[in-house]
Design a protein around this nucleic acid. Sequence first.
DNA 1: ATACCTTTACGTCAAAAGTACGTAAAGAAG
DNA 2: CTTCTTTACGTACTTTTGACGTAAAGGTAT
Lengths: 241, 241
Amino acid sequence: MIDYNHPAVRYYQEVSEQCIHYLSIDGVIFGFHENQLKVLLLRWKNTTEWSLPGGFIRKAESVDVAAQRVVQERTGLDKLYLQQFHVFGEANRYDQADTWARTKLPIQTVKWSERTISIGYYALVEHSKVVPTPDFMTDECCWWPIDNVPSLLFDHNNIINVALGSLRKQIEDQPINHLLPETFTIPELQRLYETILGYPLDARNFYKKIVGSGALERLSERRAGTPHKAPYLYRFKAKHL
Amino acid sequence: MIDYNHPAVRYYQEVSEQCIHYLSIDGVIFGFHENQLKVLLLRWKNTTEWSLPGGFIRKAESVDVAAQRVVQERTGLDKLYLQQFHVFGEANRYDQADTWARTKLPIQTVKWSERTISIGYYALVEHSKVVPTPDFMTDECCWWPIDNVPSLLFDHNNIINVALGSLRKQIEDQPINHLLPETFTIPELQRLYETILGYPLDARNFYKKIVGSGALERLSERRAGTPHKAPYLYRFKAKHL
DNA sequence: ATACCTTTACGTCAAAAGTACGTAAAGAAG
DNA sequence: CTTCTTTACGTACTTTTGACGTAAAGGTAT
């Protein structure tokens, strides 16, 4: 017996009509705060179960635009750095019965197709500018440290791991400049690199490499209020943004 | 007025029922022959129009398996090196009217959805082992040199460019060993690298780098019948395959 | 056969990049 | 004013990369 007024039922009916079946988007939204790399997770209504934000692609909508929309709705940000990184297309990506039981939704209301292929995007956002916003399926939206993420619904732990691997690869090629505020200090950038890479770096060598790359410009101000010697502020040169 | 006996109509009816709508797979099959990097293309029936091999994903089939199937059917190979490299998801990826006109198929028979999102895979295959096989929509299947590909149907020229970019990135990280026969000489490997990268390499430095990496083992035989000094044969060590 | 040419299979050397570690100046705390 | 931590820069050594040298192998022209 289906409750046609249940918000999930209404949502999935709408999705069924307007969106592409069997296909979804999952977003790994990375932020950096208090020297930790974090991801934005959602807690499903009336449960203690968490998942990544996700959504569906409208029939006439570009996939990139759909990803933009999904991330924008959770963060409130409109200028986003988004990177498509992998398609998760296994016929049996995760234990469906288990997952739908954990969401505490009546299974027949949400199972709108037998399986879902998910396109993974990661976003790099400035932590302080984000307003974490749950959707109508979730009670809570907040940051979790990347190395302390709970056991998630679907195969979302795996998706986060693959996203982190892609991010680590990316950081070797080009400096990553969307996770910090516009101005920052070299030591702050070093903490970011260290948490993404997962190992410590030598401050002297990091300084040499990053300044030597020519991607940054030093401002005349220094960061005030630090307990020690005040570090200079830097910003990425325009062509590196 | 639709001709329900037209093979394209029958195929798309079957696809409509058994496969996932709006979603397809395109395969860029790379081979290496006569010092040239080549891709396998299909010529559509009764036309001079070419495209990449592609296909659809069955409702309960893993995406990787579907890609495997598509490439296998065109090449006859069953052990394939396949790499998913990008999703082409623009709402308006290509000029649909133009493309369907060029295929010389009655448009309403083949337009089974408004747009298609395509998952791009590239395959690295041993040229000599491939038996190029057209399908029921195409008259001809053959190799084209990568730098002399004609104007293709759909957005397939773009897909090839993105695939080549991904391959170039991959070759910087790890040696590529699926495009050559099991045994090969260092100069042959160098020609492969040169055609993938698109610029010449210094033979002395290439030798040093590739032998120094420890990925190869030298056999006692040399390549006979060369016009000059007979080069040693090498093969990839097991753990690099 | 022998001179000649091309290619292979190494080697040499210098520049550049990466890694380890030294240290003076700045700023806070006792 | 001493002590401690951190920044900002420096020095020295090692590894990697890039330019180029060369002897041996194998064919071709005479």
